[in-house]
Simulated scan of single mutants.
Amino acid sequence: MTDIKRLRDCNRRVLFCFVFFTVWEAISGHIRYSIPEEMQKGSFVGNIVKDLGLDTKEFSDRGVRIVSRGERQYFALNVKSGYLYSTERIDREQICGQMEKCLLNFEVLVKDKAKLFAVEVEITDINDNEPRFQEDELEFRISELVAVGTRYSLEGQ
């Protein structure tokens, strides 16, 4: 009875290792790009072929495509050149709101090898929203005797 249990446990471990390494092989690459928001539609983001270490000639014959999880696809892939480019103007605040990091994730599927390569594009903020203040001008009087580094709260003014 214990021999059968050990055999089952061993079979489960072997199956787990097989599945783990198969999935690991399928999702074997990760690429990260960083672009500023508000780039024009059709702007260059990166060279997928070069960054994956593939050959351009082979790349176009392999049935490569983008697999996106979201309802909108912000990027497209030119299969002849391997270039990734934007499909529309990207507004960081519209996509990510006030989040500190704005990341768009998708995968590039190479069909004939059945491999997925994870791609992450960070959208960096540009200062496109000018600050607005309730008053045009504020006046503060600070004594010369105040210690260096003293902070003053502007709330409630």
Results as ranks from 00 to 15, higher is better:
residue 142 I to E: 03
residue 17 C to W: 07
residue 135 E to R: 15
residue 60 S to I: 13
residue 125 D to H: 14
residue 79 V to L: 06
residue 137 E to L: 14
residue 154 L to G: 01
residue 142 I to W: 00
residue 125 D to G: 14
residue 105 N to S: 10
residue 133 F to W: 06
residue 85 Y to D: 09
residue 147 A to W: 04
residue 110 V to Y: 07
residue 66 I to R: 09
residue 39 M to V: 15
residue 33 Y to G: 07
residue 69 R to L: 13
residue 5 K to D: 11
residue 42 G to R: 08
residue 156 G to H: 01
residue 21 F to R: 03
residue 7 L to D: 10
residue 90 I to N: 05
residue 71 E to Q: 07
residue 157 Q to M: 00
residue 34 S to T: 04
residue 146 V to T: 15
residue 150 T to C: 07
residue 149 G to Q: 03
residue 22 T to K: 07
residue 122 E to V: 02
residue 75 F to K: 00
residue 87 T to Y: 03
residue 28 S to C: 08
residue 119 V to M: 08
residue 155 E to T: 15
residue 107 E to D: 11
residue 60 S to T: 15
residue 83 Y to M: 12
residue 17 C to S: 02
residue 87 T to I: 05
residue 14 V to I: 15
residue 64 V to C: 14
residue 145 L to F: 12
residue 91 D to L: 06
residue 153 S to N: 03
residue 142 I to H: 00
residue 37 E to C: 15
residue 48 I to P: 03
residue 136 D to K: 12
residue 105 N to G: 08
residue 63 G to Q: 06
residue 12 R to E: 11
residue 33 Y to H: 11
residue 110 V to K: 09
residue 34 S to N: 06
residue 94 Q to R: 13
residue 32 R to S: 15
residue 138 L to S: 10
residue 87 T to G: 10
residue 11 N to I: 07
residue 53 G to R: 09
residue 90 I to L: 09
residue 23 V to W: 11
residue 6 R to V: 06
residue 58 E to M: 07
residue 27 I to L: 14
residue 52 L to R: 03
residue 131 P to F: 08
residue 150 T to Y: 09
